[in-house]
């Protein structure tokens, strides 16, 4: 464990908590893409299947359980409890265009053609694009509530911090995983324009308005 990975995981945890609290407190999921949350639930389910087979540490197990439970709780809040506030009209990204290519790619490029490894690889590829429906929704509505912006900033930062973690582990432990690194770079790059808007607008107290 290193400081980059720890802050990355905490940033990830913060993002998930921000979203849950936002939906729960405002009793509304307006401005939130249910599709992205479904994709995240799929990502954690396919990645953390090893929960039942391998024990790495209490921290690892605890965090995986939190991520899985929180992602399903978020999906439940969006599609069941507060579904009246779900923005059907704007949450229209075709997620099959993300799921299928990720699955095909995980069959073609992986470290080992075994079920758990393929599912892990699929979850890595899918996670790198899972935020697209949310970013698409923000671009369609042209704005995002500041709490949603904080959620996106924390979520985008987590994988960015993981990139630093992988650089550190390459030099400190001389190990690396190209699949995770390449997908992590793609994932972080997708947030770049949002990061720019977040720093130049939201941090100055303005609302996140995308140029129409």
């Amino acid at each position: 464990m290193n400081i980059f990975r720890l802050t990355g995981d905490l940033s990830h945890l913060l993002a998930i908590i921000i979203l849950l609290v936002k939906i729960w407190k405002t009793r509304s999921c307006a401005g939130i893409s249910g599709k992205s949350q479904l994709l995240f639930a799929l990502v954690y389910t396919t990645r953390y299947l090893d929960l039942v087979s391998t024990y790495i540490s209490a921290y690892n197990t605890f965090m995986k359980l939190i991520f899985i439970c929180a992602s399903y709780a978020t999906v439940y809040l969006i599609y069941m409890k507060f579904k009246a506030t779900y923005d059907h009209n704007h949450d229209t990204f075709r997620v099959e265009f993300l799921i299928l290519p990720s699955f095909v790619l995980s069959l073609l490029i992986n470290h080992d053609f075994a079920v758990l490894e393929i599912l892990w690889t699929f979850s890595i590829y899918l996670e790198s694009v899972a935020i697209l429906p949310q970013l698409f929704l923000v671009s369609k509505t042209g704005e995002a509530e500041s709490i949603t912006s904080h959620y996106l900033f924390a979520l985008g930062s987590y994988r960015g911090l993981y990139l630093l973690n992988w650089i550190y582990r390459y030099y400190a432990e001389s190990h690396y995983d190209l699949i995770a690194i390449v997908a992590g770079v793609v994932q972080t790059v997708l947030y770049c324009d949002f990061f720019y808007l977040y720093v130049t607008k939201v941090l100055k107290g303005k609302k996140l308005q995308l140029p129409a």
Binding site: D9, H12, I56, N60, K64, F67, N165, D177, L178
Partner: peptide
């Protein structure tokens, strides 16, 4: 192979 180690990450 390098992937076995990375599974200690979330």
């Amino acid at each position: 192979c390098e992937s076995m180690l990375v599974k200690d990450e979330l």
